[in-house]
């Protein structure tokens, strides 16, 4: 209407609050992890060694790189380099897809070994191992959904960049998508050591 309202700081502020809610969403699962780990320390260690660290490690590298390309995309748009921004956004989406493909193969292998929620083979491995994998599937699955949402969001922003609606004057949307993407990355940075490394 009459007043064109624009408040970039407000938009970023709102996004940060939204990111808190995501952190708390995942924190519920970290609480479950902590409680179960103290209950079944040995079985958790056994279960953890059944995970393939190469899949996890590769995915960590992929996500870290995608965070880098996303951060570079912001610098690019600040400097008004539209084409470079588009390339960097598309690389981020590509890396997100790579992450998901990798995850698909990792899960297929595990499911092939009879490790999935509700499987009898898994139940035979004892309650601690069962609990570890149930939690692992749910946490990684929820993270995977976030990867999909984040990649979709970046896809939308990429279209807006190509149309010029997001540009060097007005790029809060790109910044906010990048913030979201960094959160997705950050969650994985905690998941990876907890499930693959430290036990």
């Amino acid at each position: 209407m009459s007043h064109e309202h624009r408040d970039d700081t407000g938009a970023r502020f709102g996004m940060w609050i939204f990111l808190y809610t995501e952190v708390i969403l995942f924190s519920g699962l970290f609480i479950l992890y902590a409680v179960s780990l103290s209950k079944f320390p040995e079985q958790y260690s056994i279960a953890s060694h059944k995970l393939n660290i190469y899949f996890g490690g590769a995915n960590t590298l992929v996500l870290l790189t995608s965070s880098l390309t996303m951060a570079m995309a912001i610098t690019a748009i600040q400097r008004g380099r539209k084409k470079q921004t588009l390339i960097l956004c598309c690389s981020t989406i590509g890396l997100a897809l790579l992450f998901l493909v990798n995850k698909f193969f990792e899960w297929s292998a595990e499911i092939g070994h009879g490790i999935y929620p509700g499987s009898e083979e898994l139940a035979a491995m004892g309650p601690g191992v069962t609990n570890f994998f149930n939690l692992y599937y749910f946490t990684a699955g929820l993270h995977g959904i976030h990867v999909i949402i984040g990649a979709t969001l970046i896809g939308v922003v990429t279209v807006l960049v190509s149309k010029g609606r997001v540009n060097s004057e007005q790029y809060t949307l790109l910044e906010n998508s990048a913030l979201y993407w960094h959160l997705v990355d950050l969650v994985w940075i905690f998941l990876f050591p907890l499930y693959y490394l430290i036990l």
């Binding site: 969403l25 179960s36 079985q43 004892g126 309650p127 609990n131 149930n134 599937y137 749910f138």
Partner: peptide, 25 residues
Amino acid sequence: GITLALIFVERIFGAGLFDVAKGGD
């Protein structure tokens, strides 16, 4: 949100995170 989602996956996939037999609580 996360708690209700866990009920949901428990009912659909048998995730069992609140089921003592599956190591839940």
